[in-house]
Amino acid sequence: MHGIIDLTIFQILLAYIFVLILLAIVKARGIKREKEIIIASLRMTLQLVLVGYILVYIFNNPSPFITVLIIFIMESFAIYTVLKRFSEGLFPAFKRVIVFSMSTGTIACIFYFLFLVVQVSPWYDPQYFIPIAGMLIGNSMTGISLGVKSLLEGMKTQKNLVEEALVLGATPQAATKKIVDDSFDAAIMPTINSMLGMGIVFLPGMMTGQILSGTAPTTAIAYQIAIMLGILGAVALSVFVMLQLGYRTFFNKEDQLFYDLF
Protein backbone atom coordinates (compact mmCIF):
# COMPACT_ATOMS: atom_id res chain seq x y z
CA MET A 1 0.00 0.00 0.00
CA HIS A 2 1.60 3.27 -1.03
CA GLY A 3 1.01 6.53 0.77
CA ILE A 4 -1.17 9.33 -0.55
CA ILE A 5 0.40 11.70 -3.08
CA ASP A 6 -0.52 15.22 -2.03
CA LEU A 7 -1.13 17.24 -5.18
CA THR A 8 0.79 20.49 -5.33
CA ILE A 9 -0.71 23.65 -6.76
CA PHE A 10 1.51 23.21 -9.80
CA GLN A 11 0.21 19.69 -10.40
CA ILE A 12 -3.40 20.90 -10.22
CA LEU A 13 -2.63 23.71 -12.64
CA LEU A 14 -1.38 21.07 -15.07
CA ALA A 15 -4.87 19.50 -14.95
CA TYR A 16 -6.38 22.76 -16.19
CA ILE A 17 -4.72 22.00 -19.52
CA PHE A 18 -7.87 19.99 -20.25
CA VAL A 19 -9.97 23.14 -19.99
CA LEU A 20 -7.61 24.96 -22.35
CA ILE A 21 -7.86 22.12 -24.85
CA LEU A 22 -11.65 22.23 -24.70
CA LEU A 23 -11.61 26.02 -25.13
CA ALA A 24 -9.35 25.69 -28.15
CA ILE A 25 -11.70 23.15 -29.70
CA VAL A 26 -14.89 25.16 -29.27
CA LYS A 27 -13.16 28.31 -30.45
CA ALA A 28 -11.87 26.60 -33.58
CA ARG A 29 -15.28 25.16 -34.36
CA GLY A 30 -17.12 28.39 -33.65
CA ILE A 31 -19.26 26.89 -30.88
CA LYS A 32 -20.24 29.75 -28.60
CA ARG A 33 -19.64 28.07 -25.28
CA GLU A 34 -16.37 29.65 -24.06
CA LYS A 35 -18.09 31.71 -21.42
CA GLU A 36 -19.97 28.74 -19.94
CA ILE A 37 -16.86 26.58 -19.90
CA ILE A 38 -14.82 29.23 -18.10
CA ILE A 39 -17.61 29.95 -15.61
CA ALA A 40 -18.16 26.25 -14.94
CA SER A 41 -14.44 25.63 -14.35
CA LEU A 42 -14.15 28.63 -12.05
CA ARG A 43 -17.28 27.78 -10.09
CA MET A 44 -16.25 24.16 -9.71
CA THR A 45 -12.86 25.26 -8.37
CA LEU A 46 -14.18 27.95 -6.05
CA GLN A 47 -17.03 25.84 -4.67
CA LEU A 48 -14.78 22.89 -3.93
CA VAL A 49 -12.05 25.03 -2.34
CA LEU A 50 -14.68 26.66 -0.17
CA VAL A 51 -16.26 23.35 0.79
CA GLY A 52 -12.78 21.99 1.50
CA TYR A 53 -12.04 24.71 4.02
CA ILE A 54 -15.49 24.42 5.56
CA LEU A 55 -15.06 20.67 5.93
CA VAL A 56 -11.61 21.11 7.50
CA TYR A 57 -13.15 23.47 10.01
CA ILE A 58 -16.09 21.16 10.72
CA PHE A 59 -13.92 18.07 11.07
CA ASN A 60 -11.67 19.90 13.51
CA ASN A 61 -14.60 21.22 15.52
CA PRO A 62 -17.22 18.45 15.48
CA SER A 63 -20.47 19.60 17.03
CA PRO A 64 -24.00 18.19 16.86
CA PHE A 65 -25.31 21.65 16.11
CA ILE A 66 -23.19 22.10 13.00
CA THR A 67 -23.93 18.58 11.76
CA VAL A 68 -27.67 19.14 12.09
CA LEU A 69 -27.37 22.54 10.45
CA ILE A 70 -25.56 21.02 7.48
CA ILE A 71 -28.13 18.25 7.06
CA PHE A 72 -30.81 20.91 7.17
CA ILE A 73 -29.08 22.93 4.46
CA MET A 74 -28.57 19.88 2.23
CA GLU A 75 -32.17 18.79 2.73
CA SER A 76 -33.53 22.27 1.98
CA PHE A 77 -31.41 22.59 -1.11
CA ALA A 78 -32.57 19.20 -2.41
CA ILE A 79 -36.25 19.99 -1.74
CA TYR A 80 -35.88 23.43 -3.29
CA THR A 81 -34.32 21.88 -6.40
CA VAL A 82 -37.26 19.48 -6.82
CA LEU A 83 -39.91 22.15 -6.20
CA LYS A 84 -38.24 24.53 -8.60
CA ARG A 85 -38.06 21.94 -11.32
CA PHE A 86 -41.83 21.40 -11.27
CA SER A 87 -42.78 24.93 -10.31
CA GLU A 88 -45.72 25.07 -12.71
CA GLY A 89 -47.27 21.65 -12.22
CA LEU A 90 -47.38 21.63 -8.43
CA PHE A 91 -50.26 22.68 -6.20
CA PRO A 92 -49.70 23.49 -2.51
CA ALA A 93 -50.89 20.16 -1.07
CA PHE A 94 -48.56 18.25 -3.37
CA LYS A 95 -45.64 20.54 -2.49
CA ARG A 96 -46.19 19.74 1.17
CA VAL A 97 -46.13 16.04 0.35
CA ILE A 98 -42.78 16.43 -1.41
CA VAL A 99 -41.28 18.31 1.53
CA PHE A 100 -42.59 15.73 3.98
CA SER A 101 -41.58 12.63 2.04
CA MET A 102 -38.12 13.91 1.14
CA SER A 103 -37.26 14.85 4.71
CA THR A 104 -38.80 11.89 6.56
CA GLY A 105 -37.62 9.31 4.01
CA THR A 106 -34.01 10.47 3.95
CA ILE A 107 -33.68 11.30 7.64
CA ALA A 108 -35.06 7.92 8.69
CA CYS A 109 -32.57 6.17 6.41
CA ILE A 110 -29.62 8.36 7.42
CA PHE A 111 -30.15 7.60 11.09
CA TYR A 112 -30.75 3.91 10.52
CA PHE A 113 -27.62 3.72 8.40
CA LEU A 114 -25.35 5.60 10.74
CA PHE A 115 -26.52 4.10 14.02
CA LEU A 116 -27.22 0.50 13.12
CA VAL A 117 -25.12 -0.21 10.03
CA VAL A 118 -21.97 1.89 10.50
CA GLN A 119 -22.46 2.43 14.26
CA VAL A 120 -20.83 5.84 14.32
CA SER A 121 -19.95 7.43 17.61
CA PRO A 122 -20.39 10.16 18.51
CA TRP A 123 -23.60 10.21 16.47
CA TYR A 124 -22.82 13.57 14.92
CA ASP A 125 -19.29 12.65 13.72
CA PRO A 126 -19.17 14.91 10.64
CA GLN A 127 -16.67 12.73 8.81
CA TYR A 128 -19.37 10.07 8.41
CA PHE A 129 -22.53 12.02 8.79
CA ILE A 130 -21.96 14.59 6.07
CA PRO A 131 -20.86 12.44 3.12
CA ILE A 132 -23.40 9.72 3.85
CA ALA A 133 -26.27 12.17 4.30
CA GLY A 134 -25.16 13.87 1.10
CA MET A 135 -25.32 10.66 -0.89
CA LEU A 136 -28.67 9.53 0.49
CA ILE A 137 -30.26 12.95 0.06
CA GLY A 138 -28.82 13.45 -3.42
CA ASN A 139 -30.07 10.10 -4.67
CA SER A 140 -33.48 10.52 -3.07
CA MET A 141 -33.75 13.88 -4.75
CA THR A 142 -33.24 12.26 -8.14
CA GLY A 143 -35.70 9.49 -7.27
CA ILE A 144 -38.37 11.90 -6.03
CA SER A 145 -37.95 14.04 -9.16
CA LEU A 146 -38.52 11.04 -11.40
CA GLY A 147 -41.46 9.86 -9.30
CA VAL A 148 -43.13 13.27 -9.25
CA LYS A 149 -42.64 13.68 -12.99
CA SER A 150 -44.15 10.29 -13.70
CA LEU A 151 -47.09 10.83 -11.32
CA LEU A 152 -47.94 14.25 -12.77
CA GLU A 153 -47.67 12.97 -16.32
CA GLY A 154 -49.68 9.86 -15.54
CA MET A 155 -52.49 11.82 -13.90
CA LYS A 156 -52.58 14.12 -16.89
CA THR A 157 -52.39 11.65 -19.76
CA GLN A 158 -54.49 8.95 -18.07
CA LYS A 159 -57.03 11.25 -16.49
CA ASN A 160 -59.81 9.70 -18.56
CA LEU A 161 -58.97 6.22 -17.23
CA VAL A 162 -58.92 7.51 -13.65
CA GLU A 163 -62.28 9.16 -14.21
CA GLU A 164 -63.67 6.01 -15.81
CA ALA A 165 -62.52 3.94 -12.84
CA LEU A 166 -64.21 6.36 -10.44
CA VAL A 167 -67.57 6.25 -12.20
CA LEU A 168 -67.39 2.46 -12.10
CA GLY A 169 -67.09 2.67 -8.32
CA ALA A 170 -63.34 2.52 -7.76
CA THR A 171 -61.71 4.10 -4.73
CA PRO A 172 -59.15 6.81 -5.60
CA GLN A 173 -56.48 4.35 -4.55
CA ALA A 174 -57.67 1.66 -6.98
CA ALA A 175 -58.26 4.22 -9.72
CA THR A 176 -54.65 5.44 -9.57
CA LYS A 177 -52.95 2.15 -8.74
CA LYS A 178 -51.35 1.69 -12.14
CA ILE A 179 -50.06 5.26 -12.32
CA VAL A 180 -48.63 5.02 -8.79
CA ASP A 181 -46.97 1.66 -9.48
CA ASP A 182 -45.46 2.86 -12.76
CA SER A 183 -44.15 5.98 -11.04
CA PHE A 184 -42.51 3.94 -8.31
CA ASP A 185 -40.90 1.81 -10.96
CA ALA A 186 -39.64 4.83 -12.89
CA ALA A 187 -38.19 6.34 -9.72
CA ILE A 188 -36.22 3.33 -8.50
CA MET A 189 -35.04 1.96 -11.87
CA PRO A 190 -31.91 4.15 -12.11
CA THR A 191 -30.78 2.96 -8.67
CA ILE A 192 -31.39 -0.68 -9.60
CA ASN A 193 -29.55 -0.20 -12.90
CA SER A 194 -26.58 1.36 -11.21
CA MET A 195 -26.46 -1.61 -8.82
CA LEU A 196 -26.39 -3.93 -11.83
CA GLY A 197 -23.47 -2.10 -13.42
CA MET A 198 -21.61 -1.57 -10.16
CA GLY A 199 -17.95 -2.54 -10.32
CA ILE A 200 -18.12 -3.62 -13.95
CA VAL A 201 -19.33 -0.66 -15.93
CA PHE A 202 -18.04 1.90 -13.47
CA LEU A 203 -16.42 2.40 -10.11
CA PRO A 204 -18.61 4.68 -8.06
CA GLY A 205 -17.24 8.04 -7.02
CA MET A 206 -17.12 7.35 -3.34
CA MET A 207 -15.11 4.17 -3.79
CA THR A 208 -12.77 5.79 -6.29
CA GLY A 209 -12.17 8.60 -3.84
CA GLN A 210 -11.47 6.22 -0.96
CA ILE A 211 -9.09 4.10 -3.02
CA LEU A 212 -7.23 7.16 -4.29
CA SER A 213 -6.81 8.44 -0.78
CA GLY A 214 -5.22 5.17 0.33
CA THR A 215 -8.05 3.06 1.77
CA ALA A 216 -7.73 -0.67 1.09
CA PRO A 217 -10.01 -1.61 -1.84
CA THR A 218 -11.72 -4.26 0.31
CA THR A 219 -12.69 -1.66 2.91
CA ALA A 220 -13.78 0.71 0.18
CA ILE A 221 -15.93 -2.04 -1.32
CA ALA A 222 -17.54 -2.91 2.00
CA TYR A 223 -18.52 0.74 2.39
CA GLN A 224 -19.70 0.92 -1.19
CA ILE A 225 -21.98 -2.09 -0.76
CA ALA A 226 -23.43 -0.68 2.43
CA ILE A 227 -23.94 2.79 0.99
CA MET A 228 -25.53 1.39 -2.15
CA LEU A 229 -28.09 -0.46 -0.03
CA GLY A 230 -28.61 2.68 2.04
CA ILE A 231 -29.25 4.66 -1.14
CA LEU A 232 -31.72 2.04 -2.34
CA GLY A 233 -33.54 2.25 0.98
CA ALA A 234 -33.63 6.04 1.07
CA VAL A 235 -34.83 6.33 -2.54
CA ALA A 236 -37.48 3.63 -2.12
CA LEU A 237 -38.77 4.95 1.19
CA SER A 238 -38.98 8.61 0.22
CA VAL A 239 -40.57 7.82 -3.16
CA PHE A 240 -43.03 5.40 -1.56
CA VAL A 241 -44.15 7.97 0.99
CA MET A 242 -44.37 10.65 -1.70
CA LEU A 243 -46.59 8.48 -3.94
CA GLN A 244 -48.84 7.17 -1.17
CA LEU A 245 -49.60 10.68 0.02
CA GLY A 246 -49.21 12.32 -3.39
CA TYR A 247 -51.94 10.56 -5.40
CA ARG A 248 -54.47 11.51 -2.72
CA THR A 249 -53.83 15.23 -3.25
CA PHE A 250 -55.52 14.97 -6.66
CA PHE A 251 -58.78 14.12 -4.86
CA ASN A 252 -60.91 15.95 -2.33
CA LYS A 253 -62.53 14.49 0.79
CA GLU A 254 -65.53 13.41 -1.29
CA ASP A 255 -63.28 11.24 -3.49
CA GLN A 256 -63.78 13.63 -6.39
CA LEU A 257 -61.03 14.66 -8.78
CA PHE A 258 -59.97 18.28 -8.50
CA TYR A 259 -60.85 19.25 -12.04
CA ASP A 260 -59.18 22.62 -11.75
CA LEU A 261 -55.75 21.20 -10.95
CA PHE A 262 -54.84 19.90 -14.37
Partner: peptide, 17 residues
Protein backbone atom coordinates in the same frame (compact mmCIF):
# COMPACT_ATOMS: atom_id res chain seq x y z
CA UNK B 1 -70.10 7.85 0.87
CA UNK B 2 -69.13 8.81 -2.68
CA UNK B 3 -67.51 5.53 -3.67
CA UNK B 4 -70.38 3.39 -2.37
CA UNK B 5 -72.87 5.72 -4.06
CA UNK B 6 -71.09 5.38 -7.40
CA UNK B 7 -71.28 1.60 -7.11
CA UNK B 8 -75.04 1.92 -6.88
CA UNK B 9 -75.46 4.74 -9.40
CA UNK B 10 -73.12 3.74 -12.20
CA UNK B 11 -72.35 6.00 -15.15
CA UNK B 12 -71.55 5.37 -18.77
CA UNK B 13 -69.38 8.36 -19.64
CA UNK B 14 -69.71 10.31 -22.84
CA UNK B 15 -66.53 8.93 -24.38
CA UNK B 16 -66.04 5.85 -22.28
CA UNK B 17 -62.41 5.01 -21.79
Amino acid sequence: NSVLHRRNVVMLTQNSA
